[in-house]
Design a protein around this nucleic acid. Structure first.
Lengths: 162, 162, 162, 162
DNA sequence: TTTT
DNA sequence: TTTT
């Protein structure tokens, strides 16, 4: 069924690169997309959208994008559901990116990040992309799957559909 | 900034139509979009995506779509953040639909719903669509903004950007 | 770079299935997409868009879609340029489909076509799809690449980027 | 019906701004979108797509974009058909842009153009955009509707659907 | 919690 | 919690 998302926005933080136990790279990043209209108070709001990308492109994203970088994303909307510590069922919606385009000119420093500059190149998914059933450690006190920085993720490669 | 979503899927339940205190119609509905690949167990999974549509189109959606109906949605991804009873900050991502296309042939009955059939017509947003800062009653025990069926929603029309 | 198209419309004719000399299937079809507004005369116009799809999906399209069928297309816009008999350079824009969704309910007969019914299934490109530099026979009197029905197409498989 | 296009690419020439007899601004521009794969010869090709935008945004495009500028386009595919001097019917496909995003950092000079720099701002269509039945002068020797620079276009405002 |  |  048709499921297509295209976004252009800026990273709100440096990307978070990890590896599955089998060595598959996966990067999470969040982009802020400014709305085309202002709210009742005359302020321009933004939407904050989590994105996931796999394999070689994940490493490229980690190497070339940082907080503040302008990037384009072409992918699919994906929903994922888990139970938090209060036993409440939480549904997370994120974008499974199939390709990411770096829109920062080469040598630009977009924000307060730490890595090297981008350069208008584009990453294309080899496969029609992945899945990302990130069955993170449920004993993790933090149930926001985008904030458990630091630890390796406990995805079995059996969960990956490629 | 570019923010574009196109989905085709089936309603998981009848749409939920409400009115703001000022009489603006707003419909919430969820669609299931089957993934183009199967998971490790060979099962075809789906993504469940919440959609919002405003005004005249909201009433059309409520009149012509029901549980099981096939529909196409063209819109934008929107994020919204609120605090639940545990004081935890929850971020909700939904699709602000700008237009909805009914893909059920006229007279078809897609599922177990209750309303009348669809018919391949399409609704187009007059304005570049709305917002949906649905600041629902915070005393509501249920903090899933898609499950507080029944009560009127307490959106001030001042919150609507059109 | 980002190049994304999503269409839902009806086939204006039966799909045209061919094979390259190396046996790669390619189907051309045209879909009519009704505009969301009416013109000055109050008539609803449509856009007529040529689409191309390769390999297994091409055969599925030929088998399950016919004139009048409702279909969804997810793909990329592609331009192609050739010289017509008058020596005039003509640019053709078509959609390279990466996936096609059949939106006709199983058993439905959409229009005046000839083949069997569709059925809500979807075809997904195995690769991030193809190209289609259809360097058709330039001695062909007809320089509309979508109307040279009948003859085999003279694409060398060397021209295919996969 | 669903008809959605999103592109990111670079202008192949300065935009062409004109006015209808009734004073409605319309800008034509062509963008080159690099393909995500290389051809048989290992070269990266591009698609060249004509875009049209109306009213206030047309003037912004003319003021802020020039040859070489990086831009994002969100719009619809539109087909238009006319007869050339040889009496041959020619179909043109172009993108009716609903919004254009300037992706060149402020002060950047993207290419060999002539006008001033862009600046990451975005133009949003007030209406769900326009049409563009650009019934150009049929006595014009050149039947490429994107190359008849210089003369005013003979669109009656009656042809505009807004 | 989920649609065919 | 957020980007320019």
């Amino acid at each position: 069924m048709i499921n297509r998302v295209v976004l252009v926005g800026r990273l709100t933080a440096d990307p978070d690169l990890r590896y599955t136990p089998n060595g598959v790279a996966v990067a999470n990043f969040r982009i802020a997309v400014n709305r085309p209209f202002t709210n009742q108070q005359g302020e321009r709001e933004a939407d904050f959208l989590n994105c996931v990308i796999w394999r070689k492109q994940a490493e490229n994203v980690a190497n070339y994008l940082k907080k503040g970088s302008l990037a384009g994303v072409d992918g699919r909307m994906q929903s994922r559901s888990y139970e938090n510590q209060e036993g409440r069922r939480v549904t997370v919606v994120e974008v499974q990116a199939e390709s990411v385009q770096f829109l920062e000119p080469r040598g630009a420093s977009g924000g307060g990040g730490s890595s090297q500059g981008g350069g208008y190149s584009q990453q294309q998914s080899s496969q029609s992309s992945g899945s990302g059933q990130q069955n993170r450690d449920s004993s993790n006190l933090n149930d926001d799957p985008f904030s458990d920085n630091g630890q390796p993720i406990d995805i079995s490669d059996d969960d990956l559909p490629f």
